[in-house]
């Protein structure tokens, strides 16, 4: 079992969640709960740093969409940073690469300005 580790820090643009481990049926609810509990002001940007994600199934995808929903409800942005190749492949299949701004790393994701690169 690969437990999910989530650490939160604040960047100039807003909160950055660094996610490490497998995003699956068991761990995805943990990410959902963590994101929901993350305070987000209007106009800020929630960045999910996925560099450490080793696996992502449909439950993980659902958690990402829930995060997007959470950000948009708060009138904030969302961006994904450092998406691993295998996860990027899945995001492309399900078309999510079109609705999530993607950044090569957290540094670019937290650069002030519009979320889309």
């Amino acid at each position: 079992m690969n437990p999910l580790k989530i650490t939160t820090r604040d960047a100039a643009t807003g909160p950055v969640l660094e996610i490490t481990g497998a995003l699956d049926h068991h761990t995805a609810p943990h990410l959902r709960a963590h994101v929901t509990a993350t305070a987000l002001d209007a106009g800020r940007r929630l960045v999910l740093d996925l560099k450490g994600v080793t696996f992502c199934d449909s439950s993980g995808i659902s958690a990402l969409i829930a995060a997007r929903h959470h950000a948009h409800t708060a009138h904030a942005d969302i961006a994904l940073a450092a998406v691993p190749a295998n996860m990027l492949r899945i995001l492309r299949i399900v078309g999510l690469d079109q609705i999530f701004p993607l950044h090569p790393d957290t540094a670019t994701a937290t650069r002030p300005g519009p979320a889309s690169p």
Binding site: I61, I65, G95, I99
Partner: peptide, 14 residues
């Protein structure tokens, strides 16, 4: 069929 979006995510999808 690239770019087709997951069904049910957005109110309007392509």
């Amino acid at each position: 069929t690239p770019g087709g979006l997951l069904v049910g995510v957005l109110p309007q999808a392509t």
